[in-house]
Amino acid sequence: MTLSPPALDRQSSAPLWAQFRDVLRERILSGTLAVGAKLPTEAEFGDQFGISRIVVREALADLVRAGLIYKIRGQGAFVAARERDEDFVSTVLGFSDEMARKGRTVRTQVLRQELRDATPEEARALALPPGSQVVGLRRLRSVDGELQLLVATAIPAELAPGLHRAKLENRSLYDVLRRQYGQRIVKAERWIDAVLPDAETARLLQVEGSEPLLRIESLAYNASGKPVEHYRALHRCQSSRLHLQTTT
Protein backbone atom coordinates (compact mmCIF):
# COMPACT_ATOMS: atom_id res chain seq x y z
CA MET A 1 0.00 0.00 0.00
CA THR A 2 1.46 3.36 -1.04
CA LEU A 3 0.12 6.62 0.35
CA SER A 4 0.54 9.85 -1.59
CA PRO A 5 2.06 11.77 1.29
CA PRO A 6 1.20 15.39 2.03
CA ALA A 7 4.14 17.59 2.88
CA LEU A 8 4.79 17.83 6.59
CA ASP A 9 5.41 21.35 7.87
CA ARG A 10 8.90 21.45 9.32
CA GLN A 11 8.37 25.06 10.45
CA SER A 12 5.31 24.15 12.51
CA SER A 13 5.38 24.08 16.30
CA ALA A 14 3.72 20.64 16.10
CA PRO A 15 6.39 17.88 16.13
CA LEU A 16 6.79 15.78 12.98
CA TRP A 17 5.63 12.61 14.69
CA ALA A 18 2.33 14.28 15.68
CA GLN A 19 1.80 15.64 12.16
CA PHE A 20 2.46 12.21 10.67
CA ARG A 21 0.19 10.57 13.25
CA ASP A 22 -2.61 13.00 12.38
CA VAL A 23 -2.29 12.17 8.68
CA LEU A 24 -2.67 8.46 9.39
CA ARG A 25 -5.47 9.03 11.91
CA GLU A 26 -7.49 11.03 9.37
CA ARG A 27 -7.07 8.33 6.73
CA ILE A 28 -8.06 5.59 9.16
CA LEU A 29 -11.14 7.41 10.46
CA SER A 30 -12.24 8.43 6.96
CA GLY A 31 -11.95 4.84 5.70
CA THR A 32 -9.20 5.66 3.21
CA LEU A 33 -7.22 3.04 5.10
CA ALA A 34 -9.62 0.11 5.45
CA VAL A 35 -10.03 -2.00 8.60
CA GLY A 36 -7.53 -4.86 8.46
CA ALA A 37 -5.28 -3.13 5.95
CA LYS A 38 -1.58 -3.76 6.44
CA LEU A 39 0.42 -0.58 6.85
CA PRO A 40 3.77 0.07 5.20
CA THR A 41 6.87 -0.69 7.23
CA GLU A 42 8.62 1.98 9.28
CA ALA A 43 11.29 2.24 6.58
CA GLU A 44 8.68 2.58 3.82
CA PHE A 45 6.81 5.27 5.72
CA GLY A 46 10.10 7.06 6.32
CA ASP A 47 10.90 7.08 2.60
CA GLN A 48 7.38 8.21 1.62
CA PHE A 49 7.20 11.10 4.09
CA GLY A 50 10.89 11.97 4.32
CA ILE A 51 11.05 11.34 8.06
CA SER A 52 13.15 9.11 10.28
CA ARG A 53 12.10 5.69 11.52
CA ILE A 54 12.14 7.05 15.08
CA VAL A 55 9.51 9.63 14.10
CA VAL A 56 7.42 6.91 12.41
CA ARG A 57 7.75 4.58 15.40
CA GLU A 58 6.59 7.24 17.86
CA ALA A 59 3.52 8.04 15.75
CA LEU A 60 2.59 4.38 15.33
CA ALA A 61 2.99 3.75 19.05
CA ASP A 62 0.51 6.57 19.76
CA LEU A 63 -1.98 5.09 17.27
CA VAL A 64 -1.63 1.69 18.97
CA ARG A 65 -2.38 3.31 22.34
CA ALA A 66 -5.44 4.95 20.79
CA GLY A 67 -6.67 1.58 19.49
CA LEU A 68 -6.61 2.71 15.84
CA ILE A 69 -3.95 0.21 14.76
CA TYR A 70 -2.47 -2.98 16.19
CA LYS A 71 0.79 -4.81 15.65
CA ILE A 72 1.50 -8.49 15.15
CA ARG A 73 5.06 -9.49 15.90
CA GLY A 74 6.92 -10.38 12.72
CA GLN A 75 4.04 -9.32 10.48
CA GLY A 76 3.71 -5.56 10.90
CA ALA A 77 0.99 -3.04 11.73
CA PHE A 78 -2.67 -3.22 10.71
CA VAL A 79 -5.71 -0.95 10.87
CA ALA A 80 -7.88 -1.98 13.82
CA ALA A 81 -11.64 -2.35 13.75
CA ARG A 82 -13.60 0.30 15.57
CA GLU A 83 -14.71 -0.41 19.09
CA ARG A 84 -16.45 -3.79 19.23
CA ASP A 85 -18.97 -5.14 21.69
CA GLU A 86 -18.22 -8.60 23.06
CA ASP A 87 -21.00 -10.53 24.74
CA PHE A 88 -19.17 -13.64 25.93
CA VAL A 89 -19.20 -12.48 29.57
CA SER A 90 -23.02 -12.48 29.57
CA THR A 91 -23.61 -15.79 27.79
CA VAL A 92 -22.80 -19.44 28.41
CA LEU A 93 -21.63 -19.97 24.83
CA GLY A 94 -17.98 -19.49 25.67
CA PHE A 95 -15.52 -17.16 23.98
CA SER A 96 -14.88 -19.15 20.78
CA ASP A 97 -18.55 -19.94 20.21
CA GLU A 98 -19.66 -16.34 20.78
CA MET A 99 -17.01 -14.97 18.41
CA ALA A 100 -17.88 -17.60 15.78
CA ARG A 101 -21.54 -16.61 16.02
CA LYS A 102 -20.50 -13.08 15.10
CA GLY A 103 -18.38 -14.25 12.18
CA ARG A 104 -15.10 -13.43 13.89
CA THR A 105 -11.92 -15.49 13.57
CA VAL A 106 -10.47 -16.80 16.83
CA ARG A 107 -7.00 -18.28 17.16
CA THR A 108 -5.89 -20.08 20.31
CA GLN A 109 -2.31 -20.81 21.33
CA VAL A 110 -1.99 -23.34 24.15
CA LEU A 111 0.85 -22.26 26.42
CA ARG A 112 0.32 -24.97 29.06
CA GLN A 113 -1.84 -28.10 29.27
CA GLU A 114 -1.34 -30.45 32.18
CA LEU A 115 -2.85 -32.82 34.71
CA ARG A 116 -2.02 -31.53 38.20
CA ASP A 117 -3.26 -31.13 41.76
CA ALA A 118 -5.86 -28.42 42.25
CA THR A 119 -4.71 -25.29 44.03
CA PRO A 120 -6.62 -24.45 47.24
CA GLU A 121 -8.47 -21.68 45.39
CA GLU A 122 -9.45 -24.01 42.54
CA ALA A 123 -10.56 -26.72 44.96
CA ARG A 124 -12.82 -24.26 46.80
CA ALA A 125 -14.29 -22.84 43.59
CA LEU A 126 -14.89 -26.26 42.01
CA ALA A 127 -16.09 -27.89 45.26
CA LEU A 128 -13.37 -30.55 45.06
CA PRO A 129 -12.15 -32.66 48.00
CA PRO A 130 -8.51 -32.36 49.09
CA GLY A 131 -6.04 -34.10 46.79
CA SER A 132 -8.26 -33.79 43.70
CA GLN A 133 -6.72 -33.24 40.32
CA VAL A 134 -7.62 -30.77 37.60
CA VAL A 135 -6.70 -30.25 33.97
CA GLY A 136 -4.87 -26.94 33.98
CA LEU A 137 -4.77 -24.85 30.81
CA ARG A 138 -3.11 -21.57 29.94
CA ARG A 139 -4.10 -20.15 26.56
CA LEU A 140 -3.39 -17.02 24.53
CA ARG A 141 -6.30 -16.01 22.31
CA SER A 142 -6.63 -13.57 19.42
CA VAL A 143 -9.61 -12.23 17.50
CA ASP A 144 -9.22 -11.33 13.81
CA GLY A 145 -5.45 -11.35 14.24
CA GLU A 146 -5.42 -9.11 17.33
CA LEU A 147 -4.24 -10.50 20.67
CA GLN A 148 -7.14 -10.25 23.09
CA LEU A 149 -7.09 -12.71 26.02
CA LEU A 150 -4.73 -14.59 28.30
CA VAL A 151 -6.72 -17.29 30.09
CA ALA A 152 -5.84 -19.68 32.93
CA THR A 153 -8.41 -22.49 33.26
CA ALA A 154 -8.98 -25.41 35.64
CA ILE A 155 -11.41 -28.30 34.97
CA PRO A 156 -12.00 -31.24 37.35
CA ALA A 157 -10.07 -34.17 35.88
CA GLU A 158 -12.82 -36.62 36.85
CA LEU A 159 -15.27 -34.81 34.55
CA ALA A 160 -12.96 -34.80 31.54
CA PRO A 161 -10.52 -37.75 31.71
CA GLY A 162 -7.76 -37.42 29.14
CA LEU A 163 -8.46 -33.76 28.41
CA HIS A 164 -4.86 -32.93 29.26
CA ARG A 165 -3.84 -34.89 26.14
CA ALA A 166 -6.54 -33.52 23.79
CA LYS A 167 -5.61 -31.24 20.90
CA LEU A 168 -7.00 -27.83 21.88
CA GLU A 169 -5.08 -25.52 19.57
CA ASN A 170 -7.61 -23.30 17.77
CA ARG A 171 -10.53 -25.28 19.22
CA SER A 172 -13.46 -24.28 21.41
CA LEU A 173 -13.00 -25.79 24.87
CA TYR A 174 -16.75 -25.73 25.49
CA ASP A 175 -17.31 -27.63 22.25
CA VAL A 176 -14.78 -30.29 23.31
CA LEU A 177 -16.39 -30.60 26.75
CA ARG A 178 -19.82 -30.91 25.17
CA ARG A 179 -18.97 -33.36 22.39
CA GLN A 180 -16.38 -35.57 24.06
CA TYR A 181 -17.47 -35.52 27.69
CA GLY A 182 -21.17 -34.63 27.66
CA GLN A 183 -20.51 -31.58 29.81
CA ARG A 184 -22.87 -28.83 28.67
CA ILE A 185 -22.42 -25.48 30.34
CA VAL A 186 -25.80 -24.06 31.37
CA LYS A 187 -24.90 -21.37 33.92
CA ALA A 188 -21.92 -19.24 34.85
CA GLU A 189 -20.99 -16.65 37.46
CA ARG A 190 -18.51 -13.96 36.46
CA TRP A 191 -16.64 -11.23 38.32
CA ILE A 192 -14.82 -8.37 36.58
CA ASP A 193 -12.24 -5.87 37.80
CA ALA A 194 -9.37 -3.85 36.32
CA VAL A 195 -5.67 -4.65 36.77
CA LEU A 196 -2.31 -3.65 35.36
CA PRO A 197 -0.34 -6.43 33.61
CA ASP A 198 2.78 -7.94 35.11
CA ALA A 199 5.88 -8.19 32.91
CA GLU A 200 5.08 -11.66 31.55
CA THR A 201 1.46 -10.78 30.74
CA ALA A 202 2.55 -7.57 29.01
CA ARG A 203 5.01 -9.58 26.90
CA LEU A 204 2.46 -12.22 25.93
CA LEU A 205 -0.33 -9.76 25.07
CA GLN A 206 2.16 -7.27 23.57
CA VAL A 207 0.94 -4.38 25.69
CA GLU A 208 2.67 -1.69 27.66
CA GLY A 209 2.82 -2.14 31.40
CA SER A 210 0.65 0.96 31.84
CA GLU A 211 -2.24 -0.37 29.74
CA PRO A 212 -5.05 -1.56 32.04
CA LEU A 213 -6.63 -4.95 31.45
CA LEU A 214 -9.98 -6.33 32.51
CA ARG A 215 -9.64 -9.39 34.74
CA ILE A 216 -12.58 -11.77 34.41
CA GLU A 217 -13.08 -14.63 36.83
CA SER A 218 -15.65 -17.25 35.83
CA LEU A 219 -17.19 -20.32 37.41
CA ALA A 220 -19.31 -22.41 35.02
CA TYR A 221 -21.81 -25.17 35.90
CA ASN A 222 -23.33 -28.14 34.08
CA ALA A 223 -27.00 -29.14 34.00
CA SER A 224 -26.60 -31.01 37.30
CA GLY A 225 -25.37 -27.86 39.04
CA LYS A 226 -21.82 -29.17 39.36
CA PRO A 227 -18.93 -26.73 38.75
CA VAL A 228 -17.18 -27.70 35.52
CA GLU A 229 -14.75 -24.86 34.82
CA HIS A 230 -12.96 -22.14 36.72
CA TYR A 231 -10.99 -19.54 34.80
CA ARG A 232 -9.26 -16.21 35.16
CA ALA A 233 -8.91 -14.21 31.95
CA LEU A 234 -6.99 -11.00 31.29
CA HIS A 235 -8.73 -9.09 28.50
CA ARG A 236 -7.41 -6.27 26.33
CA CYS A 237 -10.14 -3.68 25.92
CA GLN A 238 -8.64 -0.88 23.83
CA SER A 239 -10.57 -1.87 20.70
CA SER A 240 -13.54 -3.64 22.21
CA ARG A 241 -16.11 -3.32 24.97
CA LEU A 242 -17.68 -6.04 27.08
CA HIS A 243 -21.46 -6.08 26.72
CA LEU A 244 -23.77 -7.23 29.49
CA GLN A 245 -27.54 -7.58 29.16
CA THR A 246 -29.77 -7.80 32.21
CA THR A 247 -33.46 -8.64 32.55
CA THR A 248 -36.01 -8.33 35.33
Rank of each mutant, 00 (worst) to 15 (best):
I192Y: 02
R107M: 09
D87Y: 12
V79R: 08
R116I: 06
G76M: 07
V56L: 07
I192S: 01
G182M: 00
E121G: 02
E189I: 10
R107S: 15
F45I: 09
A100D: 12
C237Y: 12
D62A: 15
D22V: 02
P5E: 11
R179C: 00
Q245E: 14
P120M: 09
E169R: 13
N170Q: 06
F20W: 11
L16N: 03
T32S: 12
V64I: 15
W191T: 11
Q206V: 11
G136R: 05
A34R: 15
R21K: 13
Q206A: 14
E200I: 06
A160W: 00
F88A: 05
S96D: 08
L149R: 09
I216S: 01
K38R: 15
N170E: 07
P130L: 13
Y221P: 04
D198L: 07
E169V: 12
D62P: 00
G145V: 06
E42S: 10
S30T: 11
V176E: 03
S172M: 01
R171G: 00
V35E: 14
R82G: 15
M99C: 12
S142Y: 08
P130R: 12
S240T: 12
E121K: 05
P156Q: 05
Y221H: 14
L159D: 07
P161N: 03
Q183L: 14
P197W: 02
A14L: 14
V23Q: 13
G131T: 03
G103Q: 08
R179N: 01
P129S: 06
S96G: 01
R65Y: 06
E44G: 13
A66E: 15
I51K: 02
D117R: 15
Q11C: 06
E208S: 13
E217H: 08
V176G: 02
R65E: 11
Q245Y: 01
R107Y: 11
L39P: 05
I51R: 02
A123K: 03
L137H: 02
A188R: 12
Q109D: 11
A127I: 02
R179M: 01
E158R: 13
R65N: 08
I185F: 03
S172Y: 00
E211Q: 15
L204K: 09
A154C: 10
E169I: 06
R138H: 08
L196F: 14
P15A: 09
R57N: 11
Q48S: 12
R184K: 14
